[in-house]
């Protein structure tokens, strides 16, 4: 017997492709682009967003019947801000160098449109278990894009993955560098992330013509 019913399993798999928060819903772009020069930073950011989105979805869903409609944005902001403060302090305590790389962008998770978007679209109208699954699904969809962009940018830009040199050593010219290959410096600069995401959108919409925009 399956652990999750079909409808619940769809909550996790839909955002991975057809309803992807970044490329289809166009949410959460800011942090997706800025920190993907290193794969490690991209993975940590995805995990942080997963924690904030899942926990936040559950909290808002539990409170959904007692939040007055006029102040619901403020309540959502406070819940998210509290969760992000927790994430920030944990990162500063257990992964200090990484928190320096992520710097301001951990705080910007508060304004990450995915989180507020899912609160409004889902958590305010559904029960806690389904909201939890929706949070996990959307953050996985977000994480997939981050990991893809981070993978290509770090591999092509510095020849490393997670900090480990995988193509050889550029200084002593070993491995792939012996054939004359050089790191592509363009991949390290910020605009590269925009172009990589543009190409991902191109591939995604070519495979699924239903997603193409009308003129």
């Amino acid at each position: 017997m399956a652990l999750l019913s079909k409808k619940d399993a769809n909550l996790i798999t839909d955002p991975l492709a057809d309803n992807n928060p970044i490329t289809i819903q166009v949410l959460g772009i800011c942090s997706a682009l800025a920190i993907t020069a290193e794969l490690k930073a991209a993975v940590v950011m995805a995990v942080s967003v997963m924690f904030v989105l899942a926990a936040g979805n559950v909290v808002i869903s539990l409170m959904r019947n007692i939040i007055p409609s006029k102040i619901r944005i403020i309540v959502q902001l406070i819940v998210v801000a509290a969760l992000v403060i927790i994430v920030d302090q944990v990162l500063k305590a257990y992964a200090y160098e990484l928190s320096k790389t992520l710097a301001v962008f951990v705080g910007l998770i508060i304004t990450n449109c995915i989180i507020m978007g899912r609160f409004e679209a889902f958590a305010l109208a559904n029960g806690p278990w389904r909201s939890f699954l929706d949070g996990i699904g959307n953050s996985l969809g977000y994480g997939v894009i981050l990991v893809i962009v981070g993978f290509f940018r770090e591999l092509l830009g510095s020849g490393t993955l997670f900090g480990y040199p995988v193509l050889g050593d550029p200084i002593t010219k070993s491995g792939l560098y012996a054939t004359g290959y050089e790191n592509n410096g363009f991949m390290i600069i910020p605009p590269a992330a925009l172009i990589v995401v543009g190409i991902i959108i191109w591939v995604q919409r070519s495979r699924n013509p239903a997603l193409v925009e009308e003129n």
Partner: peptide, 10 residues
């Protein structure tokens, strides 16, 4: 496939 969002990114 690039219309709208994709071309704006690039």
């Amino acid at each position: 496939p690039l219309r709208g969002l994709g071309i704006t990114f690039i």
